[in-house]
Amino acid sequence: MKIFCSKDALLSGVNAVQRAVSNKSTLPVLQGILIKSEHQSLQFAATDLEMGIRCEVPSQVSEEGTMVVPAKLFTDVVRKLPDTEITLEERDQSITICYYQSEIVLNGYDPEEYPLLPDLIDPISFTLPTIIFKNMIRQTIFSCALEENRPVFNGTLMQIEGSMIRLVATDTHRLAYSIAEIQNPEQSHFSGIIPAKTLSEIYRLLRDEDEVLNISFSDTQVVFQFGSIYLVSRLIEGQFPNYKQVIPQTCETKVNLSVKSFLEAVERASLLSRDKSGTNIIRINVEENELKIDQTSELGKISEQISVEMEGKNVVIAFNAKFLIDALKVIDSDKIIFELSGPFSPGVMRPLDNPNYLYLVLPVRTHN
């Protein structure tokens, strides 16, 4: 195998696939990146057997072939290469990288041992604008659980029904929900839990210029294609909780308030609210068109007041400040309606001008 290409092309190839490289696999070859040259392009691929990414970059191929390079070392080397034409040559699993009058030789792996990324057989597919999907990921993914004791919470439920796509994420303390309209002439139907790692990769790789995202799926896998990227992921097995049951249909108090004022007040109050366990609990008091946050700790005290429009009962309720901040940072509207029903029921935030998003957060029971 022998090819000529730019440093930029090599860099975009390794950057696209490197996060799919396995760092804890028993198969040494999975710590490599598969590079395949055919026609006038170079195909990069990596997988940890849960997720796989393929990407094509332009190159001049003088001899077709396949090689597997050590991912971390190859990526580090490419980053340090000068900005000139690079020649890659593979002979007996050793890879020679030539530039100017210099060369680097790396030991590779046997390409025969590298597992191929699956292409789905007879998949169901649909497309949607990348900008919509990217925003849906941004507004939900932070609610996925990080611990791995119950895998269904480590992913986001994606559902396609009619002309609707829905993403729902929850870690059992909070829940984020986003829907959008899509073209679905085939009336494809899908419901599956996509690992958070997969969605964060898609979010990282999606460019605004990749206008359309193609999503295909089977019972156990989902494929995302955009630009020169092909990303396949295993779906998480298990039953996602019935999220519709936990979203309250009524509320006792409705608070209409500015996202920016609320976010800034909560961030300031959280600086003085860290308790011994490291959690930031803040108490909110809503009465007579004012939202107050009074916080006292061994660090000092703060008293925040925001003018709001409210309907219904006065309420005092406590929340984990981080859970409020995470959501307020991704809500693109100026105003939200915060729906509350006493100190023990979940709070629900809805952007005033966007009926397609909702964030639910459970209160914290405080002893004072």
Rank of each mutant, 00 (worst) to 15 (best):
T127N: 04
L272S: 11
P115I: 07
E304S: 08
E63F: 10
N154D: 11
V57D: 06
N242S: 08
I53W: 01
S218C: 07
E339Q: 08
N184Q: 02
L27S: 06
A318E: 05
G238V: 03
V105T: 14
E63I: 04
L128I: 11
Q93L: 12
L175G: 05
T366D: 13
D92A: 15
S163Y: 09
H189N: 13
P185T: 09
T170R: 03
S261Q: 15
V68F: 01
S273M: 09
D110S: 14
Q43F: 13
Q295R: 02
L106Q: 11
T198D: 08
E112N: 12
R166W: 05
P28N: 00
P28T: 05
Q93D: 15
L42F: 05
V105D: 11
D171A: 04
I284C: 09
M136H: 04
Q187Y: 00
K329E: 08
G162Y: 07
E339S: 08
S261T: 09
M1E: 07
Q239T: 11
I53V: 09
D171F: 01
I247Q: 11
E38C: 12
L34N: 11
L73H: 03
D210K: 03
E209Y: 09
Q60L: 13
H173D: 10
T26H: 13
T296E: 08
D353A: 06
I95F: 05
F217T: 00
P195R: 12
N320S: 08
T198K: 07
L120A: 04
R19T: 12
A20F: 01
G155T: 05
A327S: 06
K329I: 03
R283C: 03
H39G: 14
N23W: 15
V105Q: 10
D171Y: 05
V17F: 12
H39Q: 15
S228I: 15
H39M: 14
S333L: 00
V259S: 00
P151N: 07
E288C: 09
E90A: 15
N23C: 15
F142S: 00
R174D: 04
Q295S: 11
N356I: 05
I132F: 07
K24Y: 06
L257C: 13
S228Q: 13
R234D: 11
I281Q: 08
A9Y: 03
G347P: 02
E181F: 14
S216Q: 10
Q221D: 10
Q139G: 13
P351F: 06
S273N: 10
N135E: 12
Q31V: 09
D122Q: 15
K134N: 09
V286Q: 08
F226D: 10
V78Y: 02
S200T: 14
V266E: 14
P185N: 05
L42K: 00
Q245R: 07
E290G: 06
L81F: 05
F262I: 03
K244C: 08
T87E: 09
R19Y: 12
S345K: 05
Y100N: 14
D326V: 03
A321E: 03
I325W: 00
I35W: 02
T172Q: 12
